Amino acid sequence: MPTVYLVTGGSRGIGFGLVQALASAPDTIVFAGARNPSSKDLSTLATAHPDKVIPIALESADIQLNKAAAKSIEEKAGKLDVVIAVAGIGNAISMSEIEIPEFLETFKVNTVGPLVLFQSVRHLLKKTFGKFVAVSSSHGSIAEMLPGPAGAYCVTKAALNSLTVKLREENPDLVIFPIDPGFVATEGALKFATDLGTPPEILKLAAPIDKAAADILKHVHEAVKVEKPRGFWNAMGPREIAF
């Protein structure tokens, strides 16, 4: 039987890179969750791999859309083995100055979204003793938090890392962990870094999306249950970073 994946943020950036990689993998079906599942690149990929890539409407923290996506996956595939929650946002505004609605939106996407997703697909993952992986950041580590005006991103990623610990504690039969892909050359990451004042020579060091996707999938494939997790994996290292 094929391994069934769900990747959120599947129409662009790291999410699309993961969908592309999985489309070429043997015995794999990937549901590509996206706000706009009919976007050009995703539609083209799905047309090229009609039996392997299935676009699906999914918006971060939208409870009804997440439940509908889970129902559709169950009807079409009958199971779900791996979920990779990629969707996230960042802004270059200090916590002292950020407007509360903007902070709440960042929290909704980066932290509440993965929780809504997990609650929606938990029953499917339980059938396969599956894996739930949240794409996070070392900047969500209190010990290694990014300095400067990126407070909402850091705080909400720290909350996401904490969330994975609680979900893992409550679901010992599942493999649940966050992963840091490092600095990746996505449009959003490059803009975020530029807004933070990152020098051009550092921007050039961003990893290609296809390499980041391959690194993430390698760790996902190798991941096993750990009794006392201490942190999350930095896929570009790799090294384990303490919370």
Score class of each variant (00 low, 15 high):
K40A: 15
L42P: 00
S43F: 04
A46Y: 01
P50E: 09
P50L: 12
D51S: 15
V53H: 11
I54R: 15
P55W: 00
A57M: 14
L58F: 05
L58E: 07
L58M: 13
E59W: 00
E59H: 03
A61V: 04
D62H: 08
I63K: 05
I63W: 01
I63E: 13
N66C: 15
N66T: 14
N66D: 13
K67L: 12
K67C: 08
K71T: 11
K71A: 13
S72Q: 15
S72P: 01
S72W: 03
S72M: 12
I73E: 05
E74V: 00
E75K: 15
E75M: 05
A77N: 09
K79D: 02
L80A: 00
V83H: 01
I84F: 08
I84P: 03
A85H: 11
A85V: 12
V86C: 14
G88Y: 06
I89M: 11
I89D: 00
G90W: 06
N91W: 06
N91K: 14
N91G: 04
I93T: 14
I93A: 04
S94W: 08
S94V: 11
M95S: 13
S96D: 13
I98W: 06
E99W: 01
P101K: 13
P101Y: 06
L104F: 07
L104D: 05
L104H: 03
L104S: 02
F107W: 09
K108V: 00
V109L: 08
N110C: 09
N110M: 12
N110E: 08
N110Y: 07
T111Q: 09
T111H: 12
T111P: 03
V112T: 14
G113S: 07
P114I: 15
V116C: 07
V116N: 06
V116K: 12
L117E: 04
L117M: 11
F118T: 02
Q119H: 11
R122V: 07
R122W: 04
R122K: 15
R122S: 02
H123Q: 01
H123Y: 05
L124F: 03
L125E: 03
L125Y: 02
K126I: 08
K126Q: 14
K126F: 04
K127V: 01
T128I: 13
G130Q: 13
K131N: 00
F132I: 05
F132Q: 01
F132K: 09
A134M: 13
V135E: 00
S136Y: 13
S138C: 10
H139V: 11
S141T: 05
S141D: 00
I142Q: 07
I142L: 15
A143C: 00
E144L: 15
M145G: 02
M145Y: 03
P147D: 11
P147G: 09
G148N: 08
P149N: 01
A150H: 09
A152P: 00
Y153S: 07
C154K: 07
V155M: 14
T156N: 05
K157L: 07
K157F: 07
A158H: 08
A159P: 01
L160P: 02
N161H: 03
S162F: 02
T164D: 10
T164V: 12
K166D: 01
K166F: 09
L167N: 06
L167W: 05
R168T: 11
E169R: 11
E170S: 09
E170Y: 04
E170T: 02
N171K: 07
N171T: 08
N171R: 11
P172D: 14
P172I: 04
P172C: 00
L174H: 02
V175S: 06
I176R: 10
I176S: 08
I176D: 08
P178F: 06
P178M: 06
